[in-house]
Design a protein around this nucleic acid. Structure first.
Lengths: 199, 199
DNA sequence: ACCTCATCGATACGGAACGTTTCGTTAAAT
DNA sequence: ATTTAACGAAACGTTCCGTATCGATGAGGT
């Protein structure tokens, strides 16, 4: 679901000032980029957006919800489809690492994961999002299965989970640079395995 | 005059009351277990330990440092060695998940990772720790290489990284229960790959 | 036996951010 | 033109931060 955790929007009075919501999301992103997660406070966002704190709290029940909406506004890396799974997976991870490195998305996502460790709402939203992405990425593997490239008994979502886990962990431990060899290695091991003798 | 070994007052100041340090670490762990990461504050730890805040700040420069020490006191899951890599990896992950589930270690580790997203010191400590664990776990793969079970060109540390990533991500997204099938699948894919045809 | 001194618990401090409440103002909807 | 609700600003009490200051405690050295 693309909606924020709650959306318990009050009565008929629809969001009267969408410009204000945009300004707040813009400010939140800017604060996150300039001050980092540790400097990301509702007060800082309100100051930056020239908005009142209650305005933020009215629409976003928590810092986590705001973070999640900021993340949702970011562009996503979509999954390639060249007809070759190895090329697709390596390309996907290369693009993802580059995207995390060169846009605010990486730091926003890190913050979101961190927040999810202490905020149940953020945890639920993140779990939901991650499950969706596993399915999306899993389609890459499904396509390869369809063309007979991958064994039919393979769990595409699980493979997507392994790929995502590799990426997440690298993001969380600041290992996004010069990891091309690791990416290629990891993909190759998932595709071909590491055993010396085959049954 | 029989003088004891000169452990004399050192730079950092001889820790005069190790019992107090233990009490603080005990309290920190208890707070973390009872109130979770969001309730984990220096003040709460001090209250619980009947210690003064300055006493904590004297020895631990940050919340992250205290967290790390708490984590270091926990038991670790060690890597099995049955002579069969698949059994070892599955056993290792099963034990790790069970350990994270049934002891405070999981939540402490989650907190540490979260803290590392906003504290450079914690990030460095975590990176160091994780690198060490990759080497340790990598020995499992090295042993399998030595007995010819694994291809000699395989990067053992990278494989360990993939295994750890899988575990970390499951921890961070609250997926520690009923994951036996996923563990077996992931290990099998790493060992045997997912391709249908081999080159 | 005395003295010295680092650590101890306790308390207070200024600062920041929390989440809420109050109050005029503004602007869309009727 | 009137209603109505979201708006910004400001202030609130609270919690926690990290630091400073205090007298008490107790071990080591003389």
């Amino acid at each position: 679901m693309a909606q924020p955790a709650d959306t318990a929007r009050k009565s008929i009075g629809a969001r009267r000032n969408p410009a204000s919501a945009d300004a707040i999301l813009d400010a939140a992103e800017a604060v996150l980029v300039e001050a980092g997660y540790s400097g990301f406070s509702i007060e800082a966002v309100a100051r930056r957006a020239r908005a009142g704190k209650p305005t933020i709290y009215r629409w976003w029940p928590s810092k986590a919800a705001l973070l999640f909406d900021v993340y949702q506004r970011q562009k996503r890396v979509d999954t390639p489809d060249t007809g070759n799974l190895e090329k697709d997976l390596v390309g996907f991870l290369d693009s993802l690492f580059e995207h995390w490195r060169s846009t605010p998305s990486g730091n926003i996502f890190r913050s979101l994961i961190a927040e999810a460790q202490s905020d149940d709402g953020a945890a639920a939203a993140l779990a939901d999002y991650a499950a969706g992405r596993r399915v999306t990425t899993g389609r890459m593997i499904e396509r390869a299965k369809a063309r007979g490239e991958v064994r039919s008994d393979v769990d595409a979502v699980l493979v997507a989970d392994m790929v995502a886990s590799f990426a997440w962990t690298h993001l969380l431990t600041n290992r996004l640079n010069g990891e091309e060899a690791a990416i290629r290695g990891a993909v190759r091991y998932i595709l071909q395995g590491i055993l010396d003798h085959r049954a």
